[in-house]
Design a protein around this nucleic acid. Structure first.
Lengths: 196, 196
DNA sequence: CCTACCGATCGGTAGG
DNA sequence: CCTACCGATCGGTAGG
């Protein structure tokens, strides 16, 4: 056991959470049974409970770790020495990279967080709100500095965050996805719009 | 019964579908039980089956009617006498209006279509693909006509469609929502981007 | 439209 | 880690 852990560099709990994350992404949290998760891990369902407390415990682990990572990226951008428009761009780029690299986990956090139980539900919502507010503030400052056009910062921020979810489409539908090109394409679309 | 139908201008089946749509939107298809739907309609669960065939039948009605309405809007724009960039703008505006006016139904179609059974699942996916391809074609033509910047039409199209989902945010979080201003704000964001 | 009820499946526990 | 099993809930049916 200890040797397997060392070789694979992940505990059994982490294996369970990863397998569950993929199943939650494909079928949804409610539609995924503990027996399905157990099947993919390679044990019987009751054995899962030696490593996790409940089904909800798995969802909490996924959502809260994703939330923490986005908080960390927010603080990273906060500390940057750059114009506000460049900070917006960097936050967007880090956001795309996180979605690309941890697709299942970010997808589950974005789509299944409503199934969280308290106090995790409240904590998740608050941290998400902080992330939104940070982006709104950056956009607002960039408008004041004449870097961005005059527009409603909140509408722009929410539009951007929903646009970034389009990564879900590309991850699902494209096998050989060139992430770098896609990242630049989306960033350019957001910065310059459609009009010539 | 006939009188109630005439006064309310909706059959019992339509009442069931509307109530179910709201519940599916709030809690999700899998998490909504037939007993909950019955409770909101004001009958016992088994009575629902005098009007609908199954739970899946309700979801089919919702998704396929939404799909038909978006197909209709696509054909409406197809017949327009206008530049391709104006057609893009009009498709987007109709899309926003449909999402605003039939929020629950469009939301359910967008989020729960994976729960459809064949042949409805395939039909839905095909019609959705047609809508995407139409938007891609419009953007592609607008680029050739130098109305839009040079960018990847498919990335732009998918980004736009995901941006339009931000209506979900505003419908959920704003009580007194000025739809006209929001529509213009989103359209301007899409057309002109952020940069001054 | 109702009451009564069915088989299937769920998350989770007991006990070893 | 397993087998055996629990109460709860599900979508749906029978019959009137």
């Amino acid at each position: 056991m200890a040797r397997i852990k060392a070789v694979k560099n992940s505990t059994k709990k982490e294996v369970i959470i990863n397998k569950a994350g993929t199943l939650f992404r494909k079928s949804g949290y409610r539609a995924t049974s503990m027996r399905q998760i157990a099947g993919h891990v390679g044990v019987e369902a009751p054995s899962l409970y030696n490593h996790i407390k409940s089904k909800s415990d798995i969802l909490q682990s996924i959502c809260m770790s994703v939330s923490k990572e986005f908080c960390q990226q927010r603080r990273q951008v906060e500390k940057m020495q750059a114009t506000d428009s460049l900070k917006v761009e960097q936050l967007v780029r880090l956001h795309i990279q996180k979605m690309t690299q941890h697709f299942d986990m970010v997808f589950v956090a974005n789509h299944e967080w409503k199934n969280l139980k308290e106090p995790f539900l409240s904590e998740f919502v608050i941290e998400r709100r902080q992330y939104e507010n940070f982006l709104i503030k950056l956009i607002s400052n960039a408008i004041k500095a004449k870097e961005f056009r005059t527009l409603q910062p909140k509408v722009a921020a929410i539009s951007i965050l929903y646009t970034l979810r389009s990564i879900e489409y590309w991850k699902r539908n494209s096998k050989n996805l060139n992430n770098n090109t896609l990242e630049d394409d989306i960033v350019n679309h957001l910065l310059y719009g459609l009009i010539q």
